[in-house]
Design a protein around this nucleic acid. Structure first.
Lengths: 224, 224
DNA sequence: TCAAAAGTGTTCTCTTTACACCCATGC
DNA sequence: GCATGGGTGTAAAGAGAACACTTTTGA
């Protein structure tokens, strides 16, 4: 592609990459997106989606681009939560990774094996085993979970895992899945209407029960 | 020094630098450390201390090293709070900056002009004018202040601006300077002894008033 | 009429804020 | 004895946690 051009500097420059921890719900279970590496090192292992920073983009833009490339989902605003810079974290060359997280709907994602990936999957966090991930991605995932839990108290990020319109109880389950705790229904609803995160829609959800008011994310909302 | 060796890669690699926002108190006023640039771009302007990441160190280590080089203060643990990666933020070349902050005692610092700096000074934050700083360092400083204010609610970081032993009222003034607010004395003391940040020393401060108990930072304390 | 989920208020506890006086010393 | 900062408690308001029953629908 790039021919044989090479880029030279007087001092060593690290490669800079972004890694993205993508959370979603599959059957009410909190999962993260993993891709299977098609190249050494760690060929065959599962790893976080990510890639190298390009010349003309910020790290935020790089993370959003990677996310779109791996999932087909556009208009993400991944949240930066860490930097990983141990000199030997990648055995090939020095790579500094800027880590991001985002939540999105599993149904919007068309899992696609990327350029250097052979497969992709949604991995339930609960059944993620130790030493299953490449590089230091285990550390990144566990830091991401802490950051996501913090974020979902301050922003409606958990709603990004839901359909465009949803019931309050859906939003509560999503939040509970992310936090790993259960929340009292009345307290959850009260705190919710002190914020301005949701707006009513005209529709209701029907089922073998009382119809439920449906909501969507407000337009004027603190993004991630 | 390094001769004419050069480092080549198949893809463009950005330079990675760390910038450190160092807070201290000079006459009860909150100040930050600035250095005057001896080279273009922005020759003669004031900027944050910082420098490039070396091959064998993490960004945290690089920030600590820079801090030591510019101030002579060892054993810092600067706190990472941001990344600045706009492609054109440095007109010479692409530089990504990982930003850190720390608090330290002005009396421990021997201000020294570094390799590419002609001078260094403590700049009172209050009298920092717009457009006075090089690059995007104004943004970095204002983000640092937000991060430092958050940190001083969670850790005794403000005490790092004080002598090794100090009165509670000193700690309160330092906290107030950092927060830019005044705090009720009794509330401050009550909240303080719910934490385990300080331990009593054997000594007292005397003056034309009732002697004051002196404290030091506890050994087992959440570092920055 | 039953099963299933929706929706709704009150009490208690804990945290945060506001506020004023006496104490020990040096001069 | 007076100026200076040190040290202390209580009440009110707000935030977070605990807790149970009625409503509406579909089958």
């Amino acid at each position: 592609m790039a021919g044989k051009k090479s880029y030279c500097y007087d001092y060593p420059h690290p490669a800079v990459a972004t890694d993205v921890v993508v959370f979603t719900l599959v059957n009410e279970q909190l999962c993260i997106l993993l891709i299977q590496r098609g190249e050494d090192p760690f060929k065959g292992s599962w790893a976080l989606p990510g890639g190298f920073l390009r010349e003309d983009e910020t790290v935020e833009a790089a993370a959003a681009r990677e996310l779109e490339e791996e999932t087909g989902v556009t208009e993400c605003r991944p949240l930066q939560f860490g930097i990983y810079s141990k000199p030997d974290r990648d055995p090939r060359q020095r790579v500094i990774s800027v880590a991001f997280l985002d939540c999105l709907r599993a149904s919007d994602v068309s899992l696609r094996a990327g350029t250097d990936a052979t497969a992709a999957k949604w991995q339930p966090l609960e059944s993620l085993q130790r030493h299953e991930l490449a590089f230091d991605h285990e550390t990144i995932v566990s830091d991401a979970l802490v950051a996501a839990r913090k974020a979902c108290r301050e922003t409606p990020i958990a709603a990004k895992m839901l359909p465009e319109i949803f019931r309050i109880s859906d939003f509560q389950s999503a939040t509970e899945a992310l936090l790993g705790t259960s929340i009292d229904k009345r307290n959850f609803r009260r705190q919710l209407d002190e914020k301005n995160w949701l707006e009513k829609t005209e529709s209701e959800a029907r089922g073998t029960h009382r119809p439920a008011q449906l909501y969507r994310l407000s337009r004027s909302v603190p993004e991630t």
